[in-house]
Design a protein around this nucleic acid. Structure first.
Length: 814
RNA sequence: GCCGGGGUGGCGGAACAGGUGAGACGCGCCCGCCUUAAAAGCGGGUGUCCCCAUAGGGGGCGUGCGGGUUCGAGUCCCGCCCCCGGCACCA
């Protein structure tokens, strides 16, 4: 027998799969009966220079599932592509010179080669890159659809600005007041921005989470992010201004406890204060970053001299400006109830404002000197005029109803989710296809002029203005509407737009008349298994859901959720830190593929632990896995050479093979427990190695092991399959366990006395209960323990155990 | 603070529906075989404490801690402790 040579085998089979177009899949012909399908997809990768172990996990999971489902008779779509716009390439170009396109495309070539070497079964005929004009052309087309329906709009808004990257950041890209990308401190700026009206879909996005099969933790994050709160909007009149100001509150039951009123520094009315003290406070507050405000030890604020009238009792409340009230949540104004809100309490303490308790437990007293926060269950209203004594929740409702009849309040729902600001002052992104005209305003670029191709520029360095502004030939164009002078939009789209619809394009990747054909998209979607990391749980996966809902409302597709099932893979870590380019601790697979082969790497990454938890990379385990592959090689080769063909018996080895089929099928197909499936195959190989030449059963066991390991180690599996005298394992039906052989001939039934095992019986699995009890009683060792006690109860689990419960002294014999 | 996920051998982990002595499978380590030697490979051992003993056998205790339910609990319930992740002046 020749020795195992991973490199030769892997190259051989990769060539064969490629020549056979083994993993390319066709869309169904229009009108034809659509075959049962499965759409398996890993989150779109950014094409950094090289693959690392962190990438191996999701892609190998996707590959195992793809190969498994294909052999189970499904038509499987498993494409791959590149999220190739974005800051890293642009920053690299600024740093090292060259065009971002050059380094990006070089990286794509390199990473594609690495992916092929891993043997992942992708339909490369559908590959896409988001920086390809043929891709973003259709993104611009969809943007125009959004724009025309008012779902994309421009407004001035305070935005998070990264002074280092010279660009606007989404809220999600800011962590602890710093740019998540470069770590620079984020500033706040007022700028005209493009927004998608995702807030229109907030309730929809929340409700439809109930229809998808995702881990609860991921759903929880999205719910958290959307942040729905129920409450009321209540109008307060500011006496001195004669203006009504709405506030949002989740605690209308505490309205009688309001003792002051607060406006956010950015609130429009604040501009009307003339006192220099207030103006100075507003200036200082707006310079402060939100996170610095939040971290402040003590609440700050300043009295405006105004008073707000509480609509429910006519009380005059002093109006303050304080930066603990945020302009971009609710209405930017609050009624302050220090007795029942910690923040208001803190403020009231600093400014020595009155604290009035209006909600308290029905049957106990509260300390009036502290804030009594966040309770409504079992509590009643006090100090609340005619509402006294009502349960808090009902009281709140009655108060709002009363205000409603007076036109001073209404029930309201508020979301934490904000509209999605998607314009970026950077170069390397999808151009926004609009033209500004002094006469016509914002004019969409006509669809037949798409794509608006990103022009080359001399200098990508951001200078506060987008680099595209420097491409004057490109910028200055006639207005499509009136023909007068116009200027192109020089901002580009957030790359999250690119990844909001790429999974649709895969379904019809070559379409040059539309983003995609609806029938093709409706056939393949929703995605049956979406695989990726938790870090995209709130941004990408909310945006893509929003995008699909809009396209559905516009009639472009027939479903409302893109990701029917989501599998969240863990991180690969070294030490305890997540492996990432930024952490500088990446270990690439290339070296290991060279030394041990792609098959060993694939097996290893899935064997290290449950794939939905973090996995620590260890050098020694891959050596163990290489050992397993060699062992498999040796044992199967020996069976191929020496074990005769013929029908398998019902002996131990054949039964083990059937049990392994059942286990692996369930582990991959239902449980997504990729590690235990490998362990099961190892057990089978261990048994086979005891008698590799043992007859037809050995050959059957060898074939079974090879067939079951194929999703994980497809190259060596194909090679061994061929040596066993067969061909094209990747097309063979997945093996089916014979239920008759899953039954073992004899089972061990435990005999317990008071739950302690005293003997074992070896009996047929279907031995009836009474017989089991009789056998158990006959046992000498059991007898010894039954002496001196009376059996008060006998528990029998057929095929498992008999338990005698005895009363009496001799529970534990000496 | 709120939300989510976890605590099992020297290590990664298994035990999927409360039902066989927990610890599958692998890593590491130890002993042996093979070899001039090494590598590779092969065989065996490996939770912990105790007892009788020549082989071997027997028993106690063990899944973060404390209670509980049950004939029976890693698995269910109550109360703690600790770790990881997310969100957070969100009114």
């Amino acid at each position: 027998m020749d020795s195992y040579d991973a490199k030769t085998i892997e190259e051989k089979w990769q060539r064969i799969w490629e020549d056979a177009r083994a993993f390319e899949v066709q869309n169904p012909e229009p009108g034809a009966d659509a075959a049962p399908k499965s759409y398996v997809l890993e989150q779109l990768p950014y094409p950094s220079g090289t693959l690392h172990m962190g990438h191996l996990l999701p892609y190998t999971i996707g590959d195992v599932v793809t190969r498994f489902r294909a052999r189970n008779g499904l038509r499987v779509l498993h494409p791959q592509g590149f999220d190739s716009f974005g800051l890293p390439a642009e920053n690299a170009a600024i740093r090292e010179g060259g065009h971002p396109r050059e380094s990006t495309e070089r990286n794509i070539v390199h990473i594609t080669r690495s992916m092929r070497r891993m043997g992942w079964a992708y339909d490369w005929a559908r590959v896409l890159s988001t920086h390809d004009p043929e891709y973003y052309r259709w993104q611009q087309w969809q943007f125009l659809e959004f724009l025309e329906r008012g779902l994309a709009y421009r407004k001035g808004a305070p935005v998070k600005w990264c002074p280092n990257d010279q660009t606007v950041l989404a809220n999600e890209q800011v962590h602890d007041g710093r740019c998540e990308r470069c770590g620079a401190e984020v500033e706040s700026r007022l700028m005209e921005q493009w927004f998608f009206r995702i807030t229109d879909y907030a309730q929809d996005l929340l409700d439809d989470l109930d229809t998808v099969d995702w881990p609860e933790s991921i759903k929880a994050r999205q719910r958290n992010w959307i942040g729905r709160s129920e409450g009321a909007e209540i109008l307060f009149r500011i006496e001195e201004l004669d203006e009504d100001v709405p506030v949002f509150t989740t605690r209308p039951d505490t309205l009688y406890g309001a003792t002051f009123f607060v406006l956010a520094p950015e609130h429009e009315l604040v501009a009307r204060v003339e006192a220099e003290e207030v103006r100075e406070y507003v200036r200082r507050a707006s310079a402060k970053k939100t996170e610095v405000r939040a971290a402040a030890a003590e609440k700050t604020g300043v009295f405006t001299g105004w008073h707000a009238v509480n609509p429910v009792n006519g009380e005059r409340l002093p109006v303050y400006v304080a930066d603990y009230v945020l302009m971009d949540y609710g209405t930017g104004a609050i009624m302050a109830v220090p007795a029942h809100d910690q923040r208001d309490f803190d403020f009231a303490t600093v400014f020595d404002l009155p604290i009035r308790h209006v909600v308290r437990p029905a049957h106990e007293d509260v300390d009036e000197g502290t804030a009594h926060v966040g309770h409504t269950e079992g509590e009643i209203l006090v100090n609340s005029a005619e509402f006294d004594g009502l349960p808090a929740v009902e009281g709140g409702r009655r108060i709002v109803e009363k205000l409603e009849t007076e036109g001073r309040g209404r029930f309201a729902i508020n979301f934490r989710l904000r509209d999605w600001g998607f314009s970026r002052q950077r170069y390397w992104g999808c151009p926004i296809p609009v033209i500004y005209c002094d006469t016509c305003g914002i004019v969409p670029v006509p669809r037949d002029e798409l794509p608006v191709v990103l022009p080359d520029v001399e200098d990508y360095k951001p200078k506060g203005r987008p680099p595209l502004a420097l491409a004057t030939d490109w910028v200055n164009v006639p207005c499509p509407s009136c023909g007068g002078p116009g200027m192109r939009e020089t901002e580009t789209m957030d790359t999250f737009v690119d990844s909001s619809w790429y999974f649709l394009r895969y379904c019809d990747a070559q379409n040059d008349a539309a983003p995609f054909d609806r029938a093709a998209v409706d056939y393949w979607n929703p995605i049956d298994l979406y695989i990726g990391g938790v870090d995209h749980a709130t941004m990408h996966m909310i945006y893509a859901r929003f995008w699909v809902k809009v396209l559905n409302d516009l009639g472009h597709l027939g479903f409302r959720e893109p990701f029917a099932r989501f599998y969240s893979n863990g991180w690969v870590t070294t030490g305890k830190t997540k492996m990432s380019k930024r952490a500088g601790n990446v270990i690439g697979p290339d070296d290991y593929v060279e030394r041990f082969g792609a098959d060993a790497c694939r097996l290893n990454i899935l064997f290290l632990g449950p794939a939905n938890e973090d996995i620590e990379w260890t050098e020694s385990s891959i050596e163990g896995m290489a050992r397993f592959v060699r062992r498999l090689w040796r044992v199967v080769n020996q069976a191929a050479e020496e074990a005769p063909a013929g029908s398998a018996s019902d002996g131990r080895l054949a039964r083990k093979a059937h049990a392994t089929i059942a286990k692996v099928t369930d582990d991959i197909g239902r449980r997504y427990a990729f590690n235990t499936a490998i362990a099961a195959v190892m057990e089978l190989v261990n048994e086979l190695s005891r008698e590799p030449a043992g007859g037809p059963d050995s050959r059957f066991a060898a074939e079974t092991a090879v067939s079951l390991v194929q999703p994980y180690a497809p190259h060596v599996a194909e090679e061994l399959w061929e040596r066993l005298g067969h061909e094209r394992l990747w097309e063979q039906p997945w093996p089916v366990a014979d239920p008759a052989l899953l039954e073992v001939e004899t089972v061990e039934v435990v005999v317990q006395v008071n739950g302690r095992i005293r003997d074992r019986l070896h009996v047929a699995p279907d031995t009836p209960e009474d017989e089991l009890v009789a056998l158990a009683r006959r046992s000498e060792r059991v007898q010894a323990h039954l002496d001196g006690g009376e059996v008060s109860r006998t528990v029998v689990v057929p095929g498992k155990l008999v338990n005698f419960v005895i009363t009496g002294e001799t529970v534990f014999p000496p």
